[in-house]
Design a protein around this nucleic acid. Sequence first.
DNA 1: TGTACATCAGTGAACGCGCGTTCACTGATGTAC
DNA 2: TGTACATCAGTGAACGCGCGTTCACTGATGTAC
Lengths: 204, 204
Amino acid sequence: MMTTGESTLSKRGYHHGDLRAVLVEATRRLVEENGPDHVSIAAACRLAGVSTAAPYKHFRDKTEMLNAVALDGMERQRLQMLDAIDGIPEGSPERVAALGRVYVTFAVSEPGVFRLMFALSGEHQDEPELMAKGEEVFGLVKREVARCTGEPEDSSPVERRSFTLWSFVHGLSFLTIDGKVAKMCGDVPLEPLLDDIARRVLAA
Amino acid sequence: MMTTGESTLSKRGYHHGDLRAVLVEATRRLVEENGPDHVSIAAACRLAGVSTAAPYKHFRDKTEMLNAVALDGMERQRLQMLDAIDGIPEGSPERVAALGRVYVTFAVSEPGVFRLMFALSGEHQDEPELMAKGEEVFGLVKREVARCTGEPEDSSPVERRSFTLWSFVHGLSFLTIDGKVAKMCGDVPLEPLLDDIARRVLAA
DNA sequence: TGTACATCAGTGAACGCGCGTTCACTGATGTAC
DNA sequence: TGTACATCAGTGAACGCGCGTTCACTGATGTAC
């Protein structure tokens, strides 16, 4: 390590490689398996194969560890969004629908992390880092909506439409992972539902 | 108690009056103050002024106690809905908007209980009593939607519109109580938002 | 090149805590006679 | 009316448990010379 003359940038651990990343991954798995509120540092340590004191070299406390998992989830969600709209022509409503599809798909494939990402208000304090990442994602939506309607990106109508769409996919995600959809509405297929709502909300 | 000759119907406790109700109320307050996942039987007992063993005369375990709080919340929500549409002419979209308003208002005024009502899937097992109550509430929405569009109440379009609206208010509720609204969208006023979305979703 | 040293990631044992649940009990109540 | 009895809601002490966090430590690593 550090055999080349490069500066002291990356402090890659010697003992474990990168215990921080390993712990975040272990915590993520536990969040997914047990739910955000049934994760313990001890369990994460067991999974990572280290002592229960080890995390305190990387995180101030349990909250900071969970925040790291949430932040990681938000970033992956954002990247998936960027990937999903790639190739779809700018200004087409399909781009908006694609963002919504990623939102719901992410929630369904990682319900634990998804819950964690939004359980922050009460549980964790409002970490500015998390808020910033959230706004970054919402900014994507606003940009695409603005391109669709031709309204200015920071205008009130765009905010309003974006927020309406966000509320919809957010609720749809939660109802789905809470099992309310299958049991109460049969199987409403996702794709047409998203296309339909996007069309309605983007209409004049 | 039981001084009249009436049958042994209501087994009103002699010691405490009705400890079950007192415990549910204590638990409800704790759910509201600490969040659904930071409630302990011990704390509820302290609040109710009884020993920590007392609840086990009324509830099998902690889950059953929380379920009682959730069920109580759902019933109050339903009653508020019935109250809200009372007086508004049948078949008018205002009735649908009124249901949505109750949904969001309830969530905002009792975020803890609202969270509990939907934290059920993972945490608690699927109590049939809770599912039934949920379907009862959703039935209200479907009925009003059907009256608005003139479509049959159990038809797929009605289910679809109802579910879309439900997703919207559900997401709006969560984003609001999670503090995402104020911080990211300024103050989008609730009323016009609800009217607007109801109009869009009920349109042909 | 080799050796002595400083660093600091990870250890392992311990702590105090509050939890959910159990248990044998007690004593206020309603009931039978 | 009074008395003996059965009921069972609530008691209080105890249990074992896993938790978050702390502490002095150790030993692998990179560095200075």
